[in-house]
């Protein structure tokens, strides 16, 4: 009899706590962004397609469905780390099959060599090239993501990828190294 009572008590308690937990789970549910949106927000949006998907959003969807997180060369290590944090997996080195991490670049059209074929305009994923047929084209460097996609279609190879120069505005206070301490602040010129 005592055993039955004990079991009953325990069972009822379990039910009650279960109900409380269940209620709490529903009542205090933390609404998060859908995973794909979160991943997409981490990706650099260069839309370069180096990952093998036609743009960053499709790659974000692929990651959400279990694809590797190390296929994004423009994002590089930093993006992989953020993705690893987000997905709760180990960060891994960039997959060399998809390219190398590089300094930030923008496309530049050598305008006197441009023949106005519009092929780069068609290739640009963010409409950052302006021009018309038989007219010289140019890159809106502020809008260029440095995806490289316009370089190949150019029949006259007049598009260069130029590294973005550091300006006094974007300078990050990294003074040359000294050796001691975490921030090195000394140098002899």
């Amino acid at each position: 009899m005592t055993i039955v009572t004990a079991l009953l008590t325990l069972g009822i308690l379990a039910l009650i706590f279960g109900a409380i937990l269940g209620f709490a789970g529903v009542r205090f549910k933390v609404e998060g962004d859908p995973l794909v949106e979160q991943i997409d927000a981490v990706l650099p949006q260069t839309q370069c397609g180096q990952c093998g998907y036609p743009g960053c959003k499709p790659y974000a969807e692929a990651i959400a469905n279990g694809d590797e997180i190390n296929k994004c060369p423009p994002g590089g290590e930093a993006t992989i780390k953020k993705l690893a944090d987000l997905m709760g997996v180990e960060a891994k080195p960039l997959d060399a099959a998809h390219g190398q991490e590089d300094v930030k670049k923008v496309a530049f059209i050598r305008e006197d060599e441009c023949i106005g074929c519009t092929k780069c305009i068609v290739a640009c994923p963010v409409d950052a090239i302006v021009g018309a047929a038989k007219q010289m084209h140019t890159v809106i460097s502020d809008e260029c993501t440095g995806c490289d996609l316009c370089v190949d279609p150019c029949p006259v190879d007049c598009i260069d990828m130029v590294p973005v120069d550091q300006t006094t505005g974007s300078w990050d206070w990294k003074l040359p190294q000294s050796g001691k301490g975490d921030i090195a602040i000394k140098v002899v010129q």
Partner: peptide
């Protein structure tokens, strides 16, 4: 020096984020 580096990193990150957002919008458009 730490604060300056952090500030410029935050600023650059913010710029990059804005740029990425713009690129995304343009790509989607």
């Amino acid at each position: 020096q730490y604060y300056r580096q952090a500030k410029s990193a935050i600023r650059n990150e913010r710029d990059e984020k804005n740029k990425a957002e713009k690129a995304k919008a343009r790509f989607e458009a």
